[in-house]
Design a binder for these strands. Structure first.
Lengths: 242, 242
DNA sequence: TCGTCGCTCCGCACACTGTACGGCGACCGC
DNA sequence: GCGGTCGCCGTACAGTGTGCGGAGCGACGA
């Protein structure tokens, strides 16, 4: 299947809209796609499925969207739009925006666990308008706090890499949870039971495993994320900030 | 499609092998799958495709492997087996193994760019034997260097999260490169050209963009990774150690 | 007012996917 | 030699992304 690399990206090609009241629109399709993804996961997103949810045929979508891949590109950028970094009072403080970016990004991914799978296919290279204005915004903060543009860019890369990486596991967990319809605590118990056997030949893993026996899983995830984020910010402070 | 969550995991269920010289084996299937993935990417891995490459029918594979998902699980753990952390002379040095883990993991992912997409679907929760013994190994090093098990686990999480996150973008880039069969430098030029337009409304992004104009891309990626890793290790040293 | 054009939407078709099922042939222990 | 078992495969089914040609409709020039 040859890929036309020369075709202009989604963002530069304007949306066609001549008819007065077209039944479908790009916005509508993207919105419904996100709803479908949130409700039933990535596997449930098929063109036919999405089409019928919009009261349309599958191929009708192709008038507004070139590809399924392009649809996902639009969806991803739409989700990026959910992240905004609140204006801070102290312009010299870069820690606040950085932390907020990380926390918001994580929250967004956990709200849309299918995101990591999509990013895995396509990378973070999408460069939709929402992502770009977000990055521009944060670069501004970092610059104002004394970072060079390069350093600021590096900081953003590190932060988002860490968050995406950490969240990959969490999102997979949430997906499994949603699909089975189980309670989190119950599923954890089940996993601990299964893991106990697998972990037997490895003394350190076994001890670690046992130490996690009676813990609220959501809190553990939260704590682990925060500790890691603190580490990262510390390191950035000593290395990147002159 | 209902998923049988109760079925024992791949690792506990022993491989059936009664016949003297069976034409197919699990190892062989996994090995060929990896070869196919490396050559043609994730999309090209279909059961039929893999079957014919092994001189067998598609459904024959199901005697050795329950699922395509399970096959991927086996494949992922097989790839994890490529990572080994060399024994270090100084037992108090945790930085060496940590850095080596990160570098090796990145190299492995870049050697198998499809990995991140698979991880995106499934998370890092696979827990195959190769991964477990790797983690056990590194936990040992960390423990010997004064980490608690919890802290060591946290460190591993952070490191792999960072690497996976950073590498997601790189792997997507490499995949695109491989699919188009283009030269990296040439493709970079093309992207810079396309990006120049997109980046116009954002002053900081534009400046950043221009500053990347004449740089060897592979070196840039390498540097960026190393700087971020140094940051992370610094942070871990001040936060996690003691 | 009447073609005619362009755009949106749709039904059909094609190649391809994962995998359930039943059969076939060859090897094993007896 | 023989029955049972196991590895392999052909067929089949539901479902996928999407190319193509046609139908209906709004707008617009003659």
């Amino acid at each position: 299947m040859p890929v036309d690399n020369q075709r202009a990206s989604v963002w530069s090609r304007p949306e066609k809209r001549r008819r007065e009241h077209p039944a479908l629109s790009r916005e509508q399709i993207v919105a419904e796609a996100i709803r479908l993804l949130d409700e039933q996961g990535l596997d449930a997103l098929s063109m036919r499925n999405l089409g019928t949810r919009l009261g349309a045929g599958a191929t009708s979508l192709y008038t507004h969207v070139a590809n399924k891949d392009e649809l996902l590109e639009l969806v991803v950028d739409e989700v990026y739009g959910e992240i905004t970094v609140a204006p801070s009072e102290d312009p010299a403080d870069w820690t606040g925006p950085a932390r907020q970016l990380a926390v918001d990004l994580r929250a967004t991914i956990l709200r849309h666990p299918w995101l990591v799978a999509v990013l895995g296919h396509a990378g973070l290279q999408h460069l939709g308008p929402n992502l770009m204005s977000l990055v521009e915004d944060i670069l501004t903060r970092f610059e104002r706090a004394g970072f060079t543009l390069r350093a600021g860019n590096q900081a953003i890369s590190m932060l988002s890499a860490y968050v995406v990486g950490i969240t990959t596991t969490e999102a997979a967990w949430l997906t499994m949870l949603a699909r089975g319809g189980h309670d989190e605590v119950e599923l954890v118990q089940q996993f601990l039971l299964a893991g106990r056997e697998a972990v037997r030949p490895y003394p350190r893993l076994r001890e670690l495993h046992e130490s996690y026996d009676q813990l609220a899983p959501a809190d553990t995830r939260e704590d682990s994320f925060t500790v890691g984020l603190d580490c990262l910010l510390d390191g950035m402070a000593t290395r990147l900030k002159t």
